[in-house]
Computed example of a mutant assay.
Amino acid sequence: MRHAHSTYTPDELGRPLSERGFLDAHEVTGLLQNENIDHIVSSPYKRAIQTVEGLAKYVDKKIEIVDGYKERKLAEGAVENFDLAIKKVWNDFDFAWEGGESNHTAQKRGVDAIVQLIDQFNGQNIVISTHGNIMVLIMNYFDPRYDFSFWEQLTMPDIYKLTFDSTQLIDVSRIWSP
C-alpha cells in the first residue's frame, strides 16, 4: 500500500502523517482488520509506519521495518522541477539524477525485498506499507501496465492486493477507493 497523506517537510525519514492522513490510516485499519494478516512490513519512513500502526495494534502484529521499501531517491536534495525530474526517470529507466536512483536501481531494490518476503513467508498474507513510486516500480517489474500514468493516478493511501504463485504475479486488485 501507498502510505496515507503526509505533511510535507524536507525530512524524508521523519515526515509525519497529516491530520487527514491519520483519519485515512484509521480507515485502513477498518478495511484490513479482517484480512487474516500474518505480517506487517513497512518502509522505515515515519509516514509509512504511522499508516499501519493502528492495524498492527488491532491484529497484534509487530511492524517489521524493511529498508527495501523506502521511497526511491530521486536526486541529492530538492529538484528544481519535480514533474520534469520524475518524467525523465520514467522515460529512461537507466537515467539517474545526481545522487539519485535510476528506475532500474530502485526497482531492483524493491523487487529484491518482495522476493525475499515471498521466500520467507510463502502463502501468507503480508501488508506492506511503502511509497507510491517504489510501489509502482515493483508492480511494473511484474507487469509493465503499471507505469508512469498509473503512478500519476494513485491516491494517498492507495491499496492494491497482489497475489503471487511463487514469484509469478497472478492477480492485482485495488482494495482502497477513497
Rank of each mutant, 00 (worst) to 15 (best):
M1Q: 03
R2N: 02
H3L: 08
A4I: 02
H5F: 00
H5C: 00
S6N: 05
T7Y: 05
Y8L: 04
P10I: 05
R15D: 01
S18H: 09
R20L: 13
G21A: 06
L23Q: 12
L23F: 02
D24M: 04
D24S: 11
A25V: 04
A25F: 04
H26D: 13
V28W: 00
T29M: 12
T29D: 00
G30K: 12
L32K: 04
N34C: 02
E35L: 05
N36E: 14
I37R: 07
D38N: 14
S42T: 00
S43W: 01
S43I: 01
P44T: 04
Y45Q: 09
K46R: 11
I49Y: 03
Q50S: 02
T51L: 05
E53G: 03
K57C: 08
K57Y: 11
Y58A: 12
Y58C: 13
D60I: 04
D60K: 15
K61P: 13
K62S: 14
I63Q: 11
E64F: 09
I65C: 11
I65T: 15
G68Q: 11
Y69R: 09
K70D: 07
E71L: 03
E71G: 04
E71N: 10
K73N: 07
K73H: 03
L74V: 10
L74G: 06
A78Q: 12
A78I: 08
E80D: 15
N81P: 07
F82H: 15
D83K: 14
L84I: 12
A85I: 05
I86L: 11
K87L: 10
N91H: 13
N91M: 13
F93K: 01
F95K: 03
G99S: 04
G99P: 07
G100H: 07
G100F: 09
N103V: 00
H104L: 12
A106G: 10
Q107Y: 11
Q107F: 11
R109N: 07
G110L: 07
A113V: 11
V115S: 05
L117G: 08
I118F: 13
D119A: 14
D119F: 10
Q120P: 03
G123H: 14
Q124Y: 07
Q124N: 13
Q124K: 15
I126G: 14
I126L: 14
I128H: 13
I128L: 12
G132C: 11
G132T: 02
G132E: 00
N133D: 15
M135I: 06
M135N: 03
M135G: 00
V136L: 05
V136R: 00
L137Y: 06
M139R: 02
N140M: 10
D143N: 15
P144I: 08
Y146L: 08
D147L: 06
F150E: 00
W151I: 06
W151Y: 14
E152Q: 15
L154N: 01
T155N: 06
T155C: 04
M156N: 15
P157S: 12
P157E: 10
I159Y: 09
I159C: 14
I159F: 06
Y160Q: 09
Y160K: 04
Y160L: 09
L162M: 15
T167Q: 11
L169F: 08
L169N: 04
D171K: 12
R174P: 06
I175C: 10
